[in-house]
């Protein structure tokens, strides 16, 4: 297990290096000069200031020098300096990552638990009303654009029925006290998390239903049933574990796409996370920030995958025995 883990980590490092190099290249062949954007934001600048800014950010160096400088810096944990915010990228990312993780993890856990429960429940009785409803709902969640679901939820639950706040992560004038603050954030979290969860809810219910059906029909479950074990025990002890496996794997595999979803959901709800930061950085050609976010999400995805891998082995010891 240790050996395969270290191999995975080695792989991950090579992958991250490739991510860095390719993204750096991609962004640097892009038309549109970050210094021009900055000068524009400043309301115009003289050629001298432009040259100075370029030199400041090392943009006057040849491409390969810039690349190696960047790689060297990343190795030292320095993701560079944001053109726009004039702040270290790592600082910007750490300012925002909390909000995104809160949103993403809440949404994923919600989708995972509710989705799996619905999927398994509906697998018990195929063609029942519940089963059909779950199938239909999951198809619906699959087919509607996630940001559109968000807009509809706002119209319904913030505008027509003013229950939840429209946007942001906390009320502008923060309520006093830790508890009140937490409650405030939770209140703001409901709609964005529900929106982001909607696609994965559909996904996990479908997935767990499919794998549960398969497991239920497999020989060893039939044997267990034949041996006279109760239905409850069979379902929850034997089948559940096996049905959850693909769901867990997918949670890992899909993590990068969850971040994509977060970009849209954060934009709809003005959630101050990495997604909105990434979107702004693109609009401002703030390439160090954008590179940093892409790199950081790659790291996040790889870490999640390795964790999932370990979780997988714990749930299903047969894998490590192979």
């Amino acid at each position: 297990m240790v050996k395969s883990l270290s191999k995975r980590i080695g792989n991950a490092v090579i992958l991250l290096l490739a991510v860095l190099v390719l993204n750096f290249t991609l962004i640097h062949i892009a038309p549109g000069d970050p210094v021009e954007v900055l000068a524009g934001e400043m309301g115009g600048a003289t050629p001298e200031l432009l040259a100075e800014l370029r030199a400041d950010f090392g943009l006057d160096q040849p491409f390969h020098v810039q690349l190696f400088t960047y790689l060297g810096n990343v190795l030292q944990g320095n993701l560079g300096y944001s053109f726009y915010y004039d702040k270290p990228v790592t600082e910007l990312i750490f300012d925002r990552i909390g909000a995104t993780l809160l949103l993403v993890i809440t949404a994923l856990l919600f989708a995972l638990f509710v989705g799996t429960a619905l999927g398994i429940a509906s697998a018990q009785k195929r063609n029942s009303l519940l089963s059909n409803v779950v199938t239909l709902l999951s198809l619906a969640g699959f087919s509607a654009p996630v940001f559109w679901i968000g807009i509809m939820l706002i119209l319904l639950l913030s505008v027509a029925l003013p229950i939840f706040p429209i946007a942001g992560m906390a009320t502008a004038d923060e309520p006093e006290g830790n508890f009140a603050y937490i409650l405030d954030v939770v209140w703001h979290l409901v709609l964005p998390a529900l929106t982001l969860a909607s696609i994965y809810l559909a996904f996990y219910s479908r997935l767990s239903r499919a794998s549960m059906l398969e497991v239920l029909e497999s020989d060893y479950i039939r044997t267990a049933r034949a041996k006279g074990l109760s239905r409850f025990l069979v379902v929850y002890k034997h089948a559940l574990r096996n049905a959850v496996l693909p769901v867990v794997t997918f949670a890992g595999l899909q993590f990068a796409q969850v971040i994509s979803g977060a970009v849209l959901v954060e934009t709809v709800f003005a959630w101050p996370g990495l997604g909105t930061l990434a979107f702004e950085s693109i609009l401002r050609r703030d390439s160090p920030t954008l590179l940093g976010i892409l790199f950081f999400s790659a790291v996040l995805v790889l870490v999640v995958n390795i964790v999932v891998d370990i979780a997988y082995r714990i749930i299903d010891p047969r894998i490590s025995a192979k």
């Binding site: 991609l26 892009a30 038309p31 549109g32 990068a256 994509s260 693109i282 999400s297 790659a298």
Partner: peptide, 17 residues
């Protein structure tokens, strides 16, 4: 490589490019 990058972000970069 393509799986670890958020595909929407990558597509946004390409479209802007």
């Amino acid at each position: 490589f393509f799986q670890v990058l958020p595909n929407l972000l990558l597509a946004m970069v390409v479209v802007m490019l």
